[in-house]
Amino acid sequence: MQWKLFADLAEVAGDREIRVDVGPGATVGDALDALFEAQPALRDRVLNDSGAVADHINVLRNGENVGADDGLETTLVEGDELALFPPVSGGR
């Protein structure tokens, strides 16, 4: 599976796209764990103090928030695209 990272998350990870060795049948949560394993610096940026994905970060599967499915328990199928997107605030 491939993760796409937006805004400052891409900088924390050092890359916009990160491939993880997680296949169909695994869950979005498994792919997220694998992402943190590949890029440990992301863990602190993405998770809050209680270890859950921070309120302001959206986890997307094929462009839609996984909350509409089973959240991090959502099962991955072949060809799924995963993304993490946070808000940005610049405007000046």
Binding site: R45, D55, H56, N58, P86, P87, V88, S89
Partner: peptide, 12 residues
């Protein structure tokens, strides 16, 4: 979409 803001300093 974004219930709360990131903590100050998180996003440069």
């Amino acid at each position: 979409l974004f219930r709360e803001a990131p903590e100050p300093g998180t996003v440069p």
